[in-house]
Measured scan of single mutants.
Amino acid sequence: LETFPLDVLVNTAAEDLPRGVDPSRKENYLSDEDFKAVFGMTRSAFANLPLWKQQNLKKEKGLF
Rank of each mutant, 00 (worst) to 15 (best):
L6I: 13
A45N: 09
L1T: 13
N28D: 15
V38C: 11
L63A: 02
G20E: 09
S24G: 10
A13E: 10
F39G: 00
F64C: 15
K59M: 11
P50Q: 04
L17Y: 06
R25S: 08
N48A: 14
A13F: 07
V8W: 14
L51D: 11
V38M: 06
A14F: 09
E15N: 11
R19N: 15
D22E: 06
D32C: 07
A14W: 12
A37T: 13
K59W: 11
A47K: 12
T12Q: 08
D32H: 07
D16A: 10
D16N: 11
V8M: 15
R19C: 15
N56A: 14
D16L: 10
D34V: 09
T3L: 08
E27F: 02
E2L: 15
R43T: 03
R25P: 02
P5A: 06
L6G: 02
V38T: 10
V8N: 05
F4T: 03
D34N: 05
F46G: 00
A13S: 13
L9P: 02
A37W: 12
V8H: 07
E33V: 11
A13M: 10
Q55F: 10
A14V: 12
R25Q: 10
L17H: 04
K36F: 15
Y29N: 05
N28K: 09
K26F: 05
E2Y: 08
F46H: 00
N11I: 05
N56G: 10
K36W: 15
F64I: 12
N48H: 12
S44E: 14
L49V: 03
K58F: 05
A37F: 13
L63H: 03
D34P: 00
V8D: 07
A13I: 09
W52F: 09
L57N: 01
A37Q: 12
S44A: 14
A13T: 10
N48C: 14
L57P: 00
G62V: 01
A37S: 13
D32L: 07
S24R: 12
L1H: 14
L1W: 15
N48D: 13
D32P: 08
A13L: 11
Y29E: 03
S44I: 13
V10T: 09
D32I: 07
K59P: 00
D32Q: 07
L63N: 03
G40I: 04
P5L: 04
F39K: 00
K26T: 08
S44W: 13
D7F: 09
M41G: 00
F46V: 00
V10D: 02
A14E: 14
W52V: 09
E2W: 08
D7L: 10
Q55I: 15
A14M: 10
G20L: 07
V10M: 14
E15R: 11
D7H: 15
G62F: 07
D22F: 03
G20Q: 08
L17K: 02
L51K: 10
E15S: 11
E60R: 08
L30K: 00
V38L: 11
K58H: 01
L6D: 03
L30W: 02
K53M: 14
K61F: 08
L30V: 04
D22H: 05
E27T: 02
W52K: 08
S24L: 15
K36L: 15
G20M: 07
F39A: 00
F64A: 15
F4R: 02
L17I: 06
F35P: 00
Q55Y: 11
F64V: 11
K58S: 03
N56W: 12
E33R: 09
A37H: 11
T42H: 08
S24P: 03
E33P: 08
W52P: 07
E60M: 11
R43N: 01
R19E: 15
L49W: 04
G40W: 04
F35E: 00
D7A: 13
E27Q: 04
R43Y: 07
T12K: 11
D7M: 09
F4K: 02
L30M: 06
L49N: 01
S31R: 07
D16T: 07
E33G: 09
A47W: 10
R43S: 03
L30D: 01
E60A: 12
N48M: 13
W52E: 13
P18V: 03
F35V: 01
E2A: 13
N48S: 15
Q54R: 13
K58R: 07
D22N: 08
V8E: 06
E60I: 10
P23Q: 07
N48E: 14
N11L: 07
R19G: 12
F39T: 01
G62P: 01
Q54P: 00
K53I: 13
R19Q: 15
R25L: 08
L6E: 02
V21E: 03
S44F: 13
L1Q: 13
A45C: 10
S44Y: 14
L30T: 01
P50M: 02
T3M: 08
P18D: 04
F64R: 06
R19M: 14
F46A: 00
T3W: 12
D32Y: 05
F4Y: 15
K36E: 14
A47C: 09
R19V: 15
K53W: 11
S24F: 13
L9K: 01
P50K: 04
A45W: 07
P50F: 01
W52S: 10
N28I: 12
T12W: 10
V38R: 01
E60K: 10
F64S: 15
F46W: 08
T42S: 13
L17V: 06
R43C: 03
N48K: 13
P5E: 06
D32K: 06
F4V: 06
D7Q: 11
K53E: 15
S24M: 15
E2Q: 14
S24I: 07
L57G: 00
L9D: 01
E60C: 09
A47E: 12
N11T: 08
Q54T: 01
G20I: 08
Q54F: 00
L6Q: 03
T12F: 08
S24N: 14
T42N: 11
D16G: 08
V21G: 03
L57E: 03
F4M: 06
L49A: 02
P23H: 07
D22L: 04
S31N: 09
T12G: 08
L57I: 10
K58C: 05
L51E: 09
F4S: 03
G62Q: 05
T12E: 06
Q54E: 00
Q55M: 14
L49S: 02
F4L: 08
E60Y: 06
G20Y: 08
F35D: 00
L6C: 06
E27A: 02
F64T: 14
K59D: 06
G40L: 09
M41Y: 05
A14S: 11
N11S: 10
T42L: 09
G40A: 10
P18N: 03
M41V: 05
R43A: 04
F39Q: 00
L1Y: 15
N11K: 10
M41F: 05
E60P: 01
R43V: 03
L51G: 09
D22C: 08
L49K: 02
L30A: 01
K53A: 12
N11V: 07
V8I: 12
M41E: 00
